[in-house]
Nucleic acid binder design. Structure first.
Lengths: 106, 106
DNA sequence: ATTTTGCGCAACCAAATAGTTGCACGTATA
DNA sequence: TATACGTGCAACTATTTGGTTGCGCAAAAT
C-alpha cells in the first residue's frame, strides 16, 4: 500500500482535518462535526494520516485525541525546497531586469 | 474531475517528471526515456499536470516541449505556510527552553 | 448490572485512477 | 508523394480510493 505524505494531502478533506487539528488535538467525532461527513469516513482519513505519521493518537479514557505531527510536514516542505530555489532565482533575475530598465531610464 | 496541484503531486512519477523538467523543458518521449514506463503513460501524466497548470506546453515543429510552471507550485507552498509557522514557533519554544536550562546551569 | 457512548475494523460499493493498446493527425524526411 | 516520426486521444482493464453499513469492544453513565 502506497502511503506517503504527498498522497495523504491529496484529499481535500484530509487537508482540512490537518488544518483543524493543527490548532488543537481533537477526537474523530469532534472532527466529523466540522464536516459534512460521517465519523467512520473521518476515521478512515485519520487512519491514513496516522499510517504516514502526519498525525498521532493520544488516548484519554475511551476518547482518542488526534494531533498534528508537524515534523512529517517538513518532508513535503523539503521536496518543495528545490522548486523554491527556482522561483527565487527567477525573481532575482526579474529584479535585475527591472533595475536594469530603471538605470537605462535615468 | 478533481484537478488541483495537491492531487497532481500525489503520484511519485509525476513528482519525478516535475523535478526532471524543472531543469529544462523536455518532450514526452525524452521524459519517458528517464522512466520505466511508456510514452503514453507519461503523456497522461503530462495531461494532468497541464490541466492543473503545473506545466505548460511549447510546440516546436512536431515536438512538444513541456516546461515547469513554477508559479503553481507556490500554491502548495502557500498551504504549507500555516504549518511552517507552527514548527517555527515550536522551534523557538524549544530554543527558549534550552537557553533557560543554560542560564540555570550558570 | 444495564445502557449509552466513542471508537476501530471488516465487508461492501461506486467512482476515480494508472496503465495499456490502438488509432488518427500533423510534421519531417526520403 | 510515400514513409517514418512525435504526438494526443479514446476505449478498455485492473487497481485504488472515498464512502457507507454493520459489527464488536471498552469506557462512561444510568
Amino acid at each position: 500500500m502506497r502511503r506517503d505524505p504527498f498522497q495523504a494531502i491529496a484529499d481535500p478533506t484530509r487537508r482540512a482535518i490537518l488544518v483543524l487539528i493543527a490548532v488543537q488535538a481533537m477526537t474523530p467525532n469532534a472532527i466529523a462535526e466540522h464536516f459534512d461527513t460521517t465519523r467512520q469516513a473521518v476515521s478512515k482519513h485519520l487512519k491514513i494520516l496516522t499510517e504516514c505519521d502526519l498525525v498521532k493518537q493520544q488516548s484519554q479514557g475511551r476518547e482518542i485525541y488526534y494531533q498534528l505531527e508537524v515534523d512529517k510536514m517538513k518532508e513535503i516542505d523539503k521536496w518543495l525546497e528545490q522548486f523554491r530555489k527556482i522561483w527565487e532565482t527567477r525573481f532575482q533575475q526579474l529584479d535585475q531586469l527591472l533595475s536594469t530598465i530603471k538605470k537605462q531610464k535615468k
